[in-house]
Every structure is written in C-alpha cells, then in structure tokens.
C-alpha cells in the first residue's frame, strides 16, 4: 500500500476505530476465534480460580478425599483467622501494608518518570552516544540479577542506605525493562514530523517530553505502571532490610504460608488478598489504556 492511498483515505473523512477493519473479517471466523480464545483463557485463569475457591473452603473440605476443585460450603473462616495468625507480629499489620503501598506507589512513579524520560531521549534526541548507551541498557537486562545482589549490597552499605526505604527504591528506578519498553513505544507512536513541528514552535526537550510525549505515550506508560506495580508489590529484598518496621507484606505472608496443611486455607486467603492490589491497578490502567488508545495512535 502506498502512502498516497493512505493520504487519500485520510482526506475522505475521519472514521472511528470501529468502522475500520470490517472488510477483512468474516463473522464465522470471529465466533470461532472467540470460542478458542475463551477456552484457552479458562485454562490460564484456572489456578486463580482455584486460589479463590480454596480460600473459602472450610477445613474439612480442604482435607477431603477425593480432592475437590470447587468449594461446596463457602465460609469466611480462613479470612477471619488471618488477624489472629498475624497477632504474634511485633509490628502491627497496618505498618506492613503502609510500607508496601508506599514503596509500590512511589517506586512506580519514580520509575515511570525516569524510564520514560530516558526512553524519550534515546528515541528522539540528537545527542552523541545515545545509541550505545541504549544498547548498554538493553543488554544489561540480560545479566542475571541474582549475581548482582552481592555487589549491590556492598554499594548500598557504602553509601549508607542499607535498612532504609531507599534500598527498595534505588534499584526500582533504573529497571532496564521499563526504559526498553518505553523506547520501543515512543519509536512507533511518536512520528518524527511531530518532533520537528514542536521544535519549530520553539519547544525545548523538557516541554516536548512533558506536554507532547507523555500524553501520546499514555497507553505505554500505563502498561509499564502495571508491570512495575506488580513487581514492586511482590518485592522481597535479599538481606538489605533488617528492621521489622521496614518490611513489606510478602515477607510477612511467608509466616502464614509456611504453616502446613491446617493453615492452607488461611494461606490461600492471604494469597488472594495479596492479589487484589495488582488486580485493581490492572483494571484502572487497562480502562485508561483503552480510552486513550484510539485517540493516540497517530495524531
């Protein structure tokens, strides 16, 4: 297809997204694909359903033979038992919850801002060395993170941030994955012509980033928010946090999940509760993504 045709079509009249792409679709195909997808989707979601069902099972159903997948007499007792299982903790549960929420939210904001700014520079600026720097970032993604924990610990203790919130935040900010994702998206979704136009209007890089790139790239950084929140929410630092007041929820949850078969119901209840915040973030982000998508593509 030539650019000419594209222009011709563009001139005819603006169309809504839903009006396109009917030409190449058959109804039967759509129904068939939907059924296949739904079946595959049921397979992938099954473990999550299992988690939820098990968390509502009374003790005798947990131990029943033959094992049952679904719950027959749902009960809340596993959830009700949670506070008493946690009351041996030296620090109140709310503190862990606050820590987790605080770290996840501030970490996500810092990471998304830093990574998208860097990605914008890698994608659209004219500075020397941006290509090689981006290659380094990209390849760093492939280095096994376990091996890095010892040098990281040494660095953190040298600059004196061991056992503070900063050991959670520092490594979260430069996550190479986020920068890579944003760079790829900005490459596709921001036409160079738009950059030219903004430059001619006298906008500096800072303004282009904040007022042009970020709004256009909203679907991408919403997606990144999702990934980043999920990762931070489940962070378990390796040997860099000692104070009980600074620990996060996942570290506390292991206390419950290590409790053996009698506690497996409560362990599932805890797992389900842990799942909720990422799911909420998913739906917030996803609804935003879908709303902005159709308008963002190409201006």
């Amino acid at each position: 297809m030539t650019t000419n045709t594209v222009k011709k079509v563009r001139m005819l009249r603006p169309k809504k997204r839903s009006e396109y792409r009917r030409y190449t679709r058959s109804k039967g195909g759509t129904v068939l694909y939907f059924s296949l997808l739904f079946l595959a989707g049921m397979f992938t979601v099954l473990p999550m359903i299992y988690c939820i069902c098990t968390s509502f099972k009374p003790l005798d159903e947990l131990l029943i033979f033959p094992p049952r997948f679904l719950v027959h007499r749902p009960t809340l007792e596993n959830y009700i038992a949670l506070p008493s299982l946690l009351n041996t903790l030296r620090v109140p549960m709310e503190r862990y919850f606050f820590n987790s929420l605080f770290i996840s939210i501030s970490g996500v904001i810092l990471h998304v801002m830093a990574a998208s700014a860097a990605a914008f520079v890698f994608s659209k600026s004219q500075i020397k060395g941006r290509k090689i720097l981006f290659l380094i970032v990209q390849f760093a993604l492939l280095y096994n993170s376990y091996t890095l924990s010892v040098p990281q610990y040494l660095i953190f203790s040298k600059i004196g941030i061991v056992d503070t919130y900063l050991v959670y935040l520092f490594p979260a900010i430069p996550s190479a994955m986020g920068c890579f994702l944003m760079k790829q998206f900005i490459d596709v979704s921001v036409p160079n012509a738009l950059m030219e136009a903004a430059r001619i209007d006298g906008a500096g890089m800072g303004r282009i980033y904040w007022q042009i790139i970020m709004p256009i790239a909203k679907p991408s950084w919403m997606t990144l928010t999702l990934f980043s929140f999920r990762d931070l929410w489940s962070t378990v630092p390796s040997g860099t946090i000692f104070s009980e007041e600074l620990k996060l929820i996942p570290q506390v949850m292991t206390n419950i999940t290590n409790g053996g078969i009698a506690r497996s119901g409560s362990a599932m209840a805890a797992t389900v509760l842990m799942m909720l915040p990422p799911i909420i973030v998913y739906f917030i982000a996803q609804s935003n993504v879908i709303e902005t998508m159709s308008s963002s593509g190409i201006k």
Binding site: M113, A115, A117, A118, S125, I127, R130, M205, Y209
Partner: peptide, 9 residues
Amino acid sequence: ASWLLLAPF
C-alpha cells in the same frame, strides 16, 4: 536538556 532528562535514569 536531553542529558538532563537522561540523568536520573
């Protein structure tokens, strides 16, 4: 400006 944007990351 580009370097400044790149600096935090």
